[in-house]
Every structure is written in structure tokens, then in C-alpha cells.
Design a protein around this nucleic acid. Structure first.
Length: 437
RNA sequence: GACCCGUUCGUCUAUCGGUUAGGACUCCAGGUUUUCAUCCUGGCAAGAAGGGUUCGACUCCCUUACGGGUCGCCA
């Protein structure tokens, strides 16, 4: 029997990280066992569904690399994969309930009569959990068919999992209390229940419930902020699951190899954007300069910077120094234009050191008279200027950096020297020296 | 309120009765880099509280506190 998992979003909003992680775990579990990952759109609430939301969810899954091998746009033997198109199927299953005398009318709607007994579920993550349905006040009979004739979530969800032969239902813990209801329905149908695994929810940094409005909640924001999908996937996977080793950086394929439900935690995890950024940098380190340059280009252009002829060289100089693609414009602006802002703190630091500041004028002169320009030649000139006045070359490196880049941190000085060229370097050092006086 | 689930450094986590409670992010210090970053080394920092069980408890049990979830003709 092949494993079949599913992700069943309702298109009422964009894909958020909680949903994305649920999809990820289902995807990983299916891949790990060589099974099928089904996408099913639960669009039974006509009033709240939107086409934009549906598209955003598909886009999000595609961006994350969570391809479904059965579902919308891909087909399969268990369609249709939109619940809004499965009306006849639900009617047929509803008739079984009527025939079995398990539903009764109430105000135009139809309620499912629960068996009044304790119901025990064997959750793959939570273990054995029992809910006592003899307590009717806590478990009122649920509506399965609305007065307008449409079916509610509990009903269609269960019917579809049965119809689509889903073997493992991996979903958020917010569904834990729904499971006995589903089990009761399945029993009434005489069906075979899938295995359930309820995964802990993702919380905000302050421990509150993460909702769609919170920072970092929308998967669609990640590409816009310059994240690599591999990093986001990696980060999400480690929220509530761990491989029991000290390795932290994984590719999607590696995760699929290692994933097990046994290693899923019970406690909810908070979302730490800082660590997510760190993880992104780790993944950035692993891609080529070409890939990096291509991905960073839209960010450079959007910042109003002109992409230069030596773009690849510019990118190579900063590639390993940023955590997000969105940080690239600020990291390269001084290489692409003249009117960039100086960091006041860096300038003040140079100004505070009288000896090094005083050497800048001489350095500008030395650079200006260099017969041939190269980073090495420039550095040699810097050394000469420094030793001539009894200073150490290292003392001039920082001032030169600030003079050329306007900031304390940046690419390797040799790269800056090469990328800027003689004229711009001389001009910037000269201007900076004047400015300090 | 009732019913469920949970609780190890600020955060993500390891530990499945005996450990100096380990790793990672963040932060700090030092080293490497004639500069920046990377990198390396070191440091700060944790078992919610109280009872049991046990020779021995972060680990098992109970109580309390706190957090989360669920109680819809939403999904």
C-alpha cells in the first residue's frame, strides 16, 4: 500500500508559514516513502474564496518546491480536486448517512448524531488521546449539511480523504479536537481511517498565536525579501522537527531522506526571523556567483541602481557578505554611483585618529602619481606612505576603506580598489581628506 | 468556563533514570585576515513551581502555575 498524503488549503487568504510547513511535512513524508502528495482545494465556502488566494497558494507551493503529483493542474485518478466540483460525490455519501439514520434535520440543516461513547485516537505525534463523547454539552452533534444545501468542512474533508485513499493526514494541532469527530463519521461510513499526525503550531516571537497579519507570516513575502526557498524550507522543517543530529543545513532532498514523524515535537515553536536570515546566508554561500547575480539583479534594479558592465565582478565582491538579496543594493551602491551616503560613525572614527587622518592627503597624492593602476600597486603605495611617516600600513587600511566606501564594513579592499579604478579612488580619497580637515 | 495538548539557555533544540545538561541563532571577548566578511577559539545563558516514586530524576506519577488549541450552518 503506497503512502498518500495531501495538503488541503482553503483559498481564503495567502499561504502562511503554518500552512506551508504543514504542506512541507506532508510532502516530505510522501517523498520519504515513495508515495503520492495530493493537493486538494477546499473551496466549500463560496463567500470567502478568491481566485487571488488560490493563485497565491499555488505560487507559494511552487516557490517552495513542494510539487504535488496529483491535484489541480496535474490531474490524477481521484479528481476533481476542487471540492466545489464534487457535489454529486458528497450527495452520495450523505445518502449513506441518511440511510443509516445517523443524521437528523435541525432548522433546515442536517446534524450528524454522534455515538455517545469515549473515542480514542492514536495520533502519530500526540500518542493516544481520548475524548469522551458521552459529555454531550462538550460535543454537540455537528452540522454536516447546511440549510442552503452545502456541506461543511468536517463532512467533505472526511469524504475526500476516504475517496482519495489518503493514508496519512498530517495537519496542524488546531485540528486535534476535530479528529474524533472525523473518526465517528468514518465509522458511520464503515470506512478505514487514515493515520493522523497533528503537528504543533507556529507562534510569534512573543509566544502569541501567529496570524496572517504578523511579520513573516506570508510565504509570498519571502521571495520579495530576498530569501532563497531552500533556506525557508530548511528553517520551517526545523521548527517542530529535528533530525537528532547536530546538522542544521539541509537541502529539500536531504530532508525528504531524513524526515520521520517520530521526530516531530509536541510543543509549539516560535518563529525567529534572525535565525531564518542566518540560514539564508548559509544557503547563499552554497550557490554560484552567477546564480546569485541573476537572483540579485531585480533587487539592484528596483533600488534604482544601474546594473553596470562589471556587474558579475561587483556581485562576486559582496556575495558572501549579505544574508538576503534585498541587502545587495545597500552593499553595492558605492560601487555603482558617486552620491552615496557616508556612515557618520565610520567617518568619526577616522577623524578621531589624528595620525591616520593626516596621512590621507599624502595617500591621495601617491595614488594619483601611480603609473599603472592595480590593487597591489595601490596597496604598495599605501605602505610607502605609511612607513615614510613611521606608521603601520594597517593603520591606513581602515581610513582608506572609509574614504572609498563611506562605511566601516564592505568588500575586500583589493576588490574595491579594482572595481573603482584609479580616477574614482584618487578623487574619493582626496575629497575625504579635505572633508576631514 | 469545559475539554484536550504542552512547558530544557532570550529563541530553535539534544537528552528517552546516573552527562561538568550538548549543539545552533543572538550577544560579548580573543585569534586569523596589512582592511571587511568568512573562519577558528573562548565566554554569557536553561530543566516553571511544589510534592511524590527511586540508591539516584530534566527524564516516571500527582498537584499548581503558565502557554497553546478546541468548543460555528469557518476551514
Amino acid at each position: 500500500m503506497t503512502v498518500r498524503t495531501r495538503f488541503a488549503p482553503s483559498p481564503t487568504g495567502y499561504l502562511h508559514v503554518g500552512g506551508a510547513r504543514t504542506a512541507l511535512f506532508n510532502w516530505l513524508f510522501a517523498r520519504k516513502h515513495g508515495g503520492d502528495f495530493v493537493l486538494r482545494v477546499e473551496d466549500t465556502d463560496a463567500a470567502r474564496n478568491t481566485e487571488e488566494a488560490r493563485q497565491a497558494i499555488f505560487d507559494g507551493l511552487n516557490w517552495l518546491g513542494l510539487d504535488w503529483n496529483e491535484g489541480p493542474e496535474r490531474g490524477g485518478n481521484f479528481g476533481p480536486y476542487y471540492q466545489s466540483e464534487r457535489r454529486e460525490i458528497y450527495d452520495a455519501w450523505f445518502a449513506k448517512l441518511v440511510a443509516a439514520g445517523r443524521v437528523y434535520e435541525d432548522g433546515g440543516a442536517w446534524r450528524f448524531r454522534f455515538d455517545r461513547k469515549p473515542v480514542t485516537m492514536h495520533d502519530l505525534v500526540c500518542g493516544e488521546v481520548t475524548i469522551d463523547y458521552r459529555d454531550e454539552s462538550n460535543t454537540p452533534d455537528m452540522v454536516v449539511k447546511r440549510s442552503d444545501g452545502s456541506y461543511v468542512f468536517h463532512f467533505v474533508n472526511v469524504v475526500d480523504d476516504l475517496e482519495m485513499e489518503i493514508t496519512h493526514v498530517i495537519r496542524g494541532e488546531d485540528h486535534l479536537m476535530n479528529t474524533p469527530k472525523h473518526l465517528q463519521l468514518i465509522e458511520a461510513f464503515g470506512g478505514k481511517a487514515p493515520q493522523y499526525a497533528h503537528i504543533p503550531l507556529i507562534l510569534n516571537p512573543d509566544g502569541s498565536k501567529m496570524s496572517k497579519r504578523d511579520a513573516g507570516a506570508a510565504v509570498g513575502d519571502y521571495p520579495r525579501q530576498g530569501f532563497l526557498s531552500a533556506a525557508v524550507v530548511n528553517f520551517l522543517a526545523l521548527l517542530g522537527w529535528n533530525p537528532k543530529t547536530e546538522q542544521e543545513i539541509f537541502s529539500l532532498a536531504e530532508l525528504a531522506e531524513l524526515f520521520t514523524l517520530e521526530n516531530v515535537n509536541r510543543a509549539p515553536a516560535r518563529f525567529d526571523l534572525e535565525k531564518c536570515k542566518w540560514m539564508n546566508q548559509q544557503h547563499l554561500l552554497g550557490i554560484s556567483v552567477d546564480e546569485f547575480a541573476a537572483a540579485a539583479k531585480p533587487f539592484v534594479a528596483e533600488a534604482g541602481l544601474t546594473v553596470p558592465d562589471n556587474y558579475a565582478a561587483v556581485i562576486a565582491a559582496v556575495k558572501d557578505k549579505v544574508r538576503l538579496f534585498s541587502e545587495v543594493p545597500a552593499a553595492v551602491d558605492f560601487l555603482l554611483k558617486e552620491d552615496f551616503d557616508d556612515d557618520p560613525e565610520a567617518v568619526a572614527k577616522v577623524r578621531a585618529s589624528a595620525t591616520s587622518a593626516g596621512l590621507l592627503g599624502g595617500l591621495a597624492q601617491a595614488l594619483a602619481t601611480l603609473p599603472e593602476w592595480s590593487a597591489d600597486a595601490a596597496k604598495a603605495a599605501l605602505t610607502d606612505v605609511a612607513v615614510a611617516t613611521g606608521a603601520k600600513p594597517g593603520q591606513l587600511m581602515f581610513p582608506l576603506r572609509v574614504a572609498l566606501t563611506g562605511r566601516a564594513h564592505g568588500p575586500d579592499l583589493g576588490d574595491v580598489l579594482n572595481l573603482l579604478g584609479k580616477d574614482r579612488c584618487v578623487k574619493r580619497v582626496r575629497n575625504f581628506a579635505t572633508k576631514l580637515c
